[in-house]
Design a protein around this nucleic acid. Sequence first.
DNA 1: CCTATTTTGTACTCATCGGTACATAATGTT
DNA 2: AACATTATGTACCGATGAGTACAAAATAGG
Lengths: 193, 193
Amino acid sequence: MVRPREFDEQEALSAAMRVFWEKGYEATSMGDLTERMGIGRPSLYAAFGGKRELFEAALRAYTKSSLVYIENKLRSATSVRQSLIGYFQGMVDGSAGNNPDFGCLCVNTMVELAPHDSLFADITGEYQTRLTELFRQLIDNGMRSGELPGRLNPSSTARLLTLSAIGLSVTMKAKPDREYAKQVAAEILTLLE
Amino acid sequence: MVRPREFDEQEALSAAMRVFWEKGYEATSMGDLTERMGIGRPSLYAAFGGKRELFEAALRAYTKSSLVYIENKLRSATSVRQSLIGYFQGMVDGSAGNNPDFGCLCVNTMVELAPHDSLFADITGEYQTRLTELFRQLIDNGMRSGELPGRLNPSSTARLLTLSAIGLSVTMKAKPDREYAKQVAAEILTLLE
DNA sequence: CCTATTTTGTACTCATCGGTACATAATGTT
DNA sequence: AACATTATGTACCGATGAGTACAAAATAGG
């Protein structure tokens, strides 16, 4: 009935996510976006609305896939301790594969946009809540199985792990010193003793 | 011999620091700066060089005064544990007085500028190193006096405290939930048990 | 094959960006 | 009081920002 889209919306969104991830929201121009997404300006506006809306879509896509990735990663190991080692070491090793060393888009957004824009405060807050919930369940399981000491408070410990993840993300982004970060990542696990 | 400056350079720099602190580097315009600093554009350029140079000066002033403030805060308490409680609770309570809830300028810079600008990676890295050193000394003292258990590794624990401080700063900035943050801040101290 | 409909590329809009030229005002020295 | 020197305010610069108008191109249905 009409002329079809010449680009894949998911791919374009993924490319946009990368750019925002690398440069931040303010420092990313529409020119950067169209170039990396491989589409023209009007196509971008027609498909996504505008810079802010595009960023929102990119951030939502990020949180979704990131949480799925983390959930799988935490599930894949043989013990609670191994799960967390895998998670934190993974952050250090360039996020285990396809992710560049630009920290966590969600953390970046917490710093750049959340204080002035409640929409992004909500989205990032939700991400944090769900990440903490994943940690809490994991700790709960570990305590039930006897792997972890019974005196831990699962909720508090989970919050502390989230806090550590945020700190590690920022540290890795600012100064990607693998050796240093690996030590810190290992040290985080002493929280479980 | 000549016409003197009509503004106080320290005050102007302090005002600039505040603006960068609140809005971030990219989102701050020269207009924002001149307005809040109460000076004209040419005066700003004559006195500070340009936006980047002004930011550098503001960041250096921040790190300097912040480290002095933290050092005093840590020294003022009667025990190591009380020192750290004071420090972390202080971050939550709106930085104990004169600081708004915009996190730590240094952490903000680690996220926004450090990955793309080695000058700021260096400045923020130095800040982090010195903060960690303050923590390490404190822990060392606590272990010597017998307040802290002997099995702690002062360096590792200090790094973990720095990581937690970063995480708490980001969390507070994004979603200033005092009650939540207070709990997390208290939980951080379990690292010392 | 023709037409209605949507996408695409080019070229623009206006606002704002960081930075500056220049004339005027204010000082210390003589 | 006159001058050299520096600070200030106005008014500007070219570049770039996000967003859009419009015509050409590409499809599906008739």
